[in-house]
């Protein structure tokens, strides 16, 4: 079976700092993969490479069999145009740590911006679908609210709905609950759980080990730019093989 996302030997450095070292990973259709690890371990950088918000220095990422960001001609890689990269990004939805909703637009306007302006879909149809998505995340009554009028948890739920409005093949989550007050984490996680149950492919960078244990098909532990250990959630979280994973989990549980 061909993976939906295939990451092969991806390296990335920021100046002196080597963020990723020869990382390879497969994500299959319908799978929920959680990336865990300390800050600075490279998990967010890996996620951003999949959406081309960061560009790998070497290695390749294929989405549904299509190489991202480059075209291979006669053994050489030619960078794709901005337009082609924008088209490739449509396959991924992205949910940011700090929500990044558009503050000058209402929740509904945030949702239809991509479908109408980028995908050129009819406004009425986009609105109907956006309302259905807002209902799905429990915020139909907030369609006319601006982000500043919503709590952090509500903003992140709108941001998830905005990602889904583009009908992506997979959704990337970059620490979606890290910027939230503790009492607002649950509502966001429950939306994500519902999404996972619906069969959406998800790649989630998270510190919520409880969420990973409950929802993830696979957990990937990263440290210092490499994948230390990866496997079924129950194995990695309950019975880790690697010493570094054990130390991390022991520290996280406290």
């Amino acid at each position: 079976m061909r993976p939906l996302v295939a990451i092969r030997q991806v390296s990335k450095r920021f100046g002196e700092f080597q963020a990723l070292k020869q990382v390879s990973l497969d994500v299959f259709e319908g799978e929920v993969v959680c990336l865990i690890g300390q800050s600075g371990s490279g998990k967010t950088t890996l996620l951003r490479c999949v959406n081309q918000l960061a560009t790998a220095d070497s290695g390749g990422i294929w989405l549904d069999g299509e190489l991202l960001g480059f075209r291979e001609i006669d053994g050489r890689l030619h960078r794709l145009s901005e337009r082609d990269i924008a088209r490739q990004r449509l396959a991924c939805g992205m949910v940011f740590q700090r929500f990044n909703l558009f503050p000058h637009m209402t929740a509904l306007e945030n949702l239809i911006e991509g479908p109408v302006q980028v995908q050129r879909r009819a406004v009425a149809e986009a609105k109907d679908e956006a309302m259905a998505l807002l209902r799905r995340v429990g915020l139909a009554d907030k369609a006319g609210s601006y982000p500043s009028q919503l709590s952090g948890g509500q903003q992140q739920r709108v941001a998830i709905a905005r990602a889904l409005a583009m009908k992506p093949r997979l959704v990337l989550f970059d620490e979606p609950t890290s910027a939230l007050d503790p009492e607002l984490v649950g509502e966001v996680l429950s939306v994500m759980k519902e999404l996972a149950r619906s069969g959406m492919t998800m790649l989630v960078v998270t510190h919520e080990l409880g969420f990973a244990r409950e929802v993830a098909d696979r957990v990937v532990y990263m440290d210092q730019g490499v994948i230390v250990e990866s496997g079924p959630a129950a194995e990695v979280l309950r019975a880790p093989r690697e010493a570094r994973t054990k130390a991390f989990l022991a520290a996280e549980v406290g």
């Binding site: 901005e82 990004r89 940011f96 700090r98 990044n100 911006e113 991509g114 995908q119 583009m166």
Partner: peptide
């Protein structure tokens, strides 16, 4: 304008000029 706004615009498939104009 926060850099996250550029990234959110890119993430919904906008090019540079469209992101500038709309977001």
């Amino acid at each position: 304008v926060d850099i996250g706004q550029y990234e959110a615009a890119q993430a919904i498939g906008m090019g540079r000029l469209q992101a500038l104009r709309r977001i």
